[in-house]
């Protein structure tokens, strides 16, 4: 039997009168790439935000590797091994690319709080090597000394990915990792994500780009109006009439 890493158990979330998530039940198997697709406003990003502690569900729970994430602080969830790539890149714009990646590596090594105010960063060769390896992984190695804020949008996304990868998380959540990227960059990112898969990292991807979904996903969950309407392998989902209707704008009307 597959080992379930992440279990979203019967989660409800509403904003005012809007049911952003209802009756969400989702199981993510270890080492798999799980895509969540659906039209705009289907509740995909809300679901990810519930998983990383940015939003609290009204009811239900998110269980990661036997631990309940609901109610935990974002940093605690990260320390358990969950990393997240945001839809709009969250990086450290004033720091160099290298420093951007060293910081997550530091959090992984020293924990959520450590006042290590005496040792010089210049002697942290291991951290720097790890960071440079992660930056090379995403193909930004010639921009190590650049200020992160000056990167192009596509490069910022790649940088954020490197910031997550350097922590070697058990679960990586990606919110539209290729949005705003050129075709070439998208293909590079797909290749990169395939390589990570070989390392046994579990991934949840929210994506609009079907090319990305069908090249990466082992399993696809389709959401619409805050509910899961279909689930299966990419081929099963592609042929599902309910999914086609949701994408063609049929909905509940």
């Amino acid at each position: 039997m597959e080992n379930i890493v992440l279990h979203v158990d019967d989660v409800y979330k509403s904003f005012g009168g809007l049911h952003a998530l209802s009756d969400i039940d989702l199981q993510i198997a270890e080492g798999k790439t799980h895509a969540i697709i659906g039209p705009n406003g289907a509740g995909k990003s809300t679901l990810l935000n519930v998983c990383i502690g940015r939003l609290k569900p009204d009811s239900g729970a998110v269980v990661f590797d036997g631990q309940i994430l609901t109610g935990k602080k974002p940093y605690e969830i990260n320390q358990l091994g969950v990393a997240r790539v945001f839809q709009t890149p969250e990086i450290f714009p004033d720091l160099t690319v290298r420093e951007n990646v060293i910081i997550p590596a530091l959090a992984k090594r020293d924990g959520a709080f450590a006042v290590d105010a005496w040792r010089g960063m210049a002697r942290e060769n291991d951290l720097r090597d790890e960071a440079e390896a992660a930056v090379t992984d995403v193909g930004l190695e010639d921009k190590l000394g650049h200020e992160a804020g000056s990167l192009s949008r596509g490069d910022k996304r790649r940088l954020e990915l490197a910031m997550c990868l350097v922590q070697k998380p058990r679960l990586l959540l990606l919110d539209e990792p290729t949005a705003g990227m050129s075709r070439l960059d998208t293909n590079r990112t797909i290749d990169l994500l395939k390589r990570i898969k070989a390392r046994g990292m579990t991934k949840v991807i929210i994506e609009h780009d079907m090319h990305v979904v069908f090249s990466l996903a082992d399993k696809v969950t389709v959401m619409a109006q805050g509910r899961i309407i279909a689930e299966g392998t990419p081929d099963e989902v592609r042929g599902d009439p309910v999914v086609q209707e949701a994408y063609l704008g049929g909905g509940h009307a």
Partner: peptide, 22 residues
């Protein structure tokens, strides 16, 4: 120091710091 780097991270993007495990 690493502590100083963490503080600069907080100045630059506190949201990212917390989702990074700090």
């Amino acid at each position: 120091s690493p502590f100083g780097l963490a503080l600069r991270g907080i100045k630059s993007n506190q949201v990212r710091m917390s989702y990074t495990g700090f």
